[in-house]
Design a protein around this nucleic acid. Structure first.
Lengths: 216, 216, 216, 216
DNA sequence: CGATAACCGAGACGGTACGTCGAGTCTTGGC
DNA sequence: GCCAAGACTCGACGTACCGTCTCGGTTATCG
């Protein structure tokens, strides 16, 4: 299992497993946490991502700079793990109906969108990633792609089971089903997300289509 | 009034009018342009917002640093004016059928996503330029909101004319119809955009729905 | 005239002349001095050369690190200029008699040896050079070689004028005349140097030889 | 008593005796030697005292850093023991003629200057190891002073036997006879030392003096 | 027309942070 | 208790930009 796509608590930030025997003094997990705690503390203290310095993080964590760099090669990699630690774990999908799984997936995105607004650390971290493109693409690779593939897999299953149309390109199918929630939770700033039935509504509406029903 | 939100074509970047008589040698407008050109060139060259340095901009523009700072107090203010300069024309909508107008709207998005010149704006400015809040809100206000309203208006018309369902919240309707292209052109990094029939396909599929047709 | 062999006050530490017109804001001579003053102050405060850090020098001088590095590429080069500033200027040689010039030269070495003991900054700087070989070889090149050549020139003149033997290799001649003072002032730690007639005595004794005069 | 001035061959570098019974696994003498070998190897490879790092020494010796620090508290103490190990036997003097003994003494210096192995000791340890005062004073005491006294004794004998002038201060006599070789072998960087008759030449020339012989 | 004042390129200035390296100490598992 | 390995805190290294400042020199406009 590749730890780099797994939640941080399953393995070391740098991908080595905690159980793996190593030579020499092992890295302290307490230090891992102290560093990430320090990042959260600084962000909560009002710093922007750009103001956040490795120097400051190390100092706030009571740790040498080298100790930070031993775990994460740069600010981006560190921030990804901090953000991962902040996010809810992805939903376990029951796998019975593709429609239900899709609703669960969208609802995860919805809750995440809400959290991004309420827990402004997440908001700051996620929205400020744009100015650190390495962070963005790393996050893309480690987190976003995984969810994309999850969605594709669910939709593929839905096509096979006869729930979804089979005469449309899979990518397009995925986009129509997932994009509405993605846009509302990520792109648009103030769209409402608190209705817990929103996910159901979106999936079902996308399935039925938005054309007016044929008369008669 | 904050000069950084005033339209560029109305005056100097720093809010002074070109016609205003001053003592001494007046600022060269050519220099304004050279600096903004340099920013675009650097960004088009693949730099990120974080990599973009005032030092580098000045050098690329063949200009002293003080000359840049004389016009813009910081990187953010400079970028705002550069983004303003990039502003693209809105799509012209025929207004005959809501479905056709929507296709035109989506195709505008598609073509913009393909355009290399504005790519960095799409990435940096639209989706995640949270670290430059003034830039973000400017762009949000002047570009995003207007197109949102355009889309809402078209869909509203479609509902009135009986093209679209009337039993669904308008916002949801808009999202289902527009989000797929928005996601593909802005959020997903290398999604294919070159098929000119993509916009049609998206609108029509969203209208028909993606559920498998009922058997029999 | 090569400023790098001239005393520091004839030119910039980095070899550029003060009079040379340059573009941009010229370097401040006051800063040159402030930096070298700071080095002296720190050394006088009891630091060893190894403890002396560029970081500390910059701070003590109230100057940015870059400002130090703009003038001197490394600690060695800076220290050389500090030492040069501390040393007495080399003697002007009258040129009338080679013997007298040699005495003057040796007396310069003698006084320098005394200074090295009384002004312990000089002592520390000169004696600790060994651990900074780059400094040593730079000093060798810029200061020592110059004096060596001066001595050779004087002795060569003495041979030509018939003051010194001509049947002996020039290098050997120089060594026999100069080495005694060199050893006493540089190598041996506690040898007496305060007798102002020592230089005369050394040159004259070396000239006459130390063999017992033939009997009869 | 400072263990670092105790003779190495009498006990462990840190002053513990080899024979002393202790609890647990005893220190390996092979490791002592491996570490000191590594220092010599690195220095012979052209490193300077400043470049020599404990880190590098441990690695070159294939030894943990703690193992080095268990024996020597710092770089200086380690170097002292390495220098001690390098110490060369003193020249044996026949004692027949003072002039011949002096030639033998100078030739010992000459050959040592040629020896590549002890070159770094000559440079680093002898002439300018001021930054390691303990090393300097140890070497001064144990090596330099004894040879100085040896030279003084020989010259004193030469004065008594009528070989050397008796109207000159003994120190001055010694310096004139010994300094030329000392300077050439220690102070001047690349002076030629390979002529085996150099020592003879130096002593004889110094004895005869370098003044031109009186005419007629 | 000449003075004046703001402009211009260049680059020095005091700072802050970068990512690396070594010092000397501590902590593993194994001998 | 020794050993190799390597993590730990600390502090300096030399570089890059920040935003400000000071040079010599260049235009416009005003008197």
């Amino acid at each position: 299992m590749d730890s780099s796509t797994a939640p941080a608590r399953d393995g070391r930030p740098d991908g080595t497993e905690y159980g793996t025997p190593r030579r020499g003094r092992p890295r302290s997990e307490a230090v891992d946490q102290a560093i990430m705690d320090a990042v959260e503390r600084l962000m909560a203290g009002g710093s922007s991502l750009a103001e956040l310095s490795m120097e400051g993080v190390a100092q706030a964590a009571g740790v040498g700079k080298a100790t930070v760099y031993r775990r994460w090669p740069n600010k981006e990699a560190l921030l990804i793990d901090v953000v991962r630690r902040l996010e809810e774990p992805e939903p376990e999908l029951a796998g019975e109906s593709a429609r239900d799984d899709l609703v669960a997936l969208l609802d995860f995105l919805r809750r995440r969108g809400l959290a991004k607004r309420s827990r402004w650390i997440l908001k700051a971290a996620l929205s400020q990633m744009g100015s650190l493109p390495a962070l963005q693409s790393l996050y893309q690779e480690r987190v976003v792609r995984r969810r994309q593939e999850l969605a594709r897999e669910v939709v593929r299953r839905g096509v096979a089971s006869g729930e979804f149309r089979s005469d449309v390109d899979l990518d397009l199918l995925v986009e129509i089903l997932v994009a509405p929630m993605l846009v509302r939770s990520v792109l648009w700033q103030d769209a409402p997300l608190d209705d817990p039935r929103l996910s159901e509504l979106m999936v079902d509406t996308a399935m039925q289509g938005v054309a007016a029903p044929a008369a008669g």
